[in-house]
Design a protein around this nucleic acid. Structure first.
Lengths: 224, 224
DNA sequence: CATCCTTGTTGACACTGTCAAGATAGGCTA
DNA sequence: TAGCCTATCTTGACAGTGTCAACAAGGATG
């Protein structure tokens, strides 16, 4: 019995749409995974649910991903990339000097975390970064680290432009990027994990607080 | 058949050692949980393993904890308390002004995270903070939040002392504590999750980097 | 003593990740 | 065209999981 008479969309279209039975399952699985993570949290994601959401049997994913971790990894890379794109957009959009850009990017970081909490938490699953060798400085080996490195580059570029323009104090730009990242990421974590979405400070807008916090750092790195 | 002829240690000793069959299982389960988390990570913790490690049947824990999350919660509270104690010790030990104390406490925070990575990660499981109402400012409702609040108080106290002594710029002390926490916690996360225990910056000691990063913040809050 | 309630046990259930083996179908050589 | 190959997907099975229900043990209390 031909149980799976999948909709025959774009069967022989000249478009990329290759793939055998499904169209391309791999992408469908990744987006299903993100959808599930958004709705039920990272722990609510099961291979079987992903498969069901994509309309395939519970074992189909194993032909595209080594194991559950590999699905999570692919979903994470997708989320990180989306976040970096959003920050890059802010970087371009913001008028003003490099310090203004750093603040805007920090706010965007926090906004993304608040709007996509489950996806943001996905980025912090340490089990996704198992690659044996290679550190931040070296060549990243896991896809997740590779994606993260893009974000770091974006920031580094901004800081160095600021240093060249005399807006940011000279010195170790890596350190400044690290401090920015720690602060912003730390705040996003705080908002998400410790306050049920509300900031510590009563009724103030978390994004406003994020701006103030980054400003505090900027006060420390600004060239006087 | 009396299968469980537990060692009869302190059966009728006048010490606290109350409890019915086991001695006191609750504490044994918590410490077993921490041991397992340390060895196999948070995801390696299963109720059945905890029970086995404590030498009881797979369902015994349910008489002390509502569900798996409750065990994790208790273990987390224990870890948070230990970390705060370590920071408090640094606060007292450090000679120098409040800025020095803040730096020392930040380094201690990172040291704890590096030395107890699994326990540290435990503190960031959002599913442990389910309490319905109550924010940082209000009365914390979950045990984990209550424990965290102690750490916040410790920092707040340090910052306010510094402000009173004219070492730290006046203003919103809550905000400064928040910035400190975000930065330090963000860095600890970075070291643990993104670099396999090694800092971004080549071969430098993570604790040294932690010191520099907090110093960057301190530069921003110091009263000039 | 008998009784109760806390603590612990065994047994069962649905659900999980993953392995193994079979089915399907497009692309290949002949 | 026929027939095989291989990637893809399915069904079936297994051990391990969290949790519920029912039962047993044994201090506490009368």
């Amino acid at each position: 019995m031909p149980k799976h008479s999948r909709r025959s969309k774009a069967r022989k279209s000249p478009e990329i749409a290759r793939g055998y039975h499904h169209g391309n399952l791999r992408a469908a699985l990744v987006s299903a995974a993100i959808k599930i993570v958004d709705k039920r949290g990272p722990d609510g994601l099961t291979i079987r649910r992903v498969a069901q959401q994509a309309g395939v049997s519970h074992n189909a994913p194993y032909h595209h991903f080594r194991d559950k971790g590999a699905i999570l990894e692919a979903a994470t890379v997708s989320c990180i990339t989306a976040m970096i794109d959003a920050m890059r957009h802010q970087q371009h959009k913001t008028r003003g000097n490099s310090l203004d850009k750093l603040i805007a990017m920090g706010v965007e970081f926090v906004r993304f975390a608040i709007e996509h909490p489950a996806e943001f938490r996905l980025m912090h699953r340490p089990e996704l970064r198992k690659s044996r060798d290679g550190c931040c400085g070296g060549t990243p080996t896991s896809p997740v680290e590779a994606a993260s490195a893009n974000g770091r580059m974006l920031l580094l570029e901004t800081v160095r432009q600021g240093q060249k323009a005399g807006e940011i104090r000279a010195g170790d730009s890596d350190m400044l990027v690290l401090a920015w990242w720690c602060l912003v990421n730390g705040y996003a974590n705080k908002v998400l994990n410790f306050s049920h979405g509300r900031p510590c400070d009563g009724e103030r807008d978390p994004l406003e607080i994020a701006r103030d916090i980054v400003q505090t750092l900027v006060d420390g790195i600004e060239k006087k």
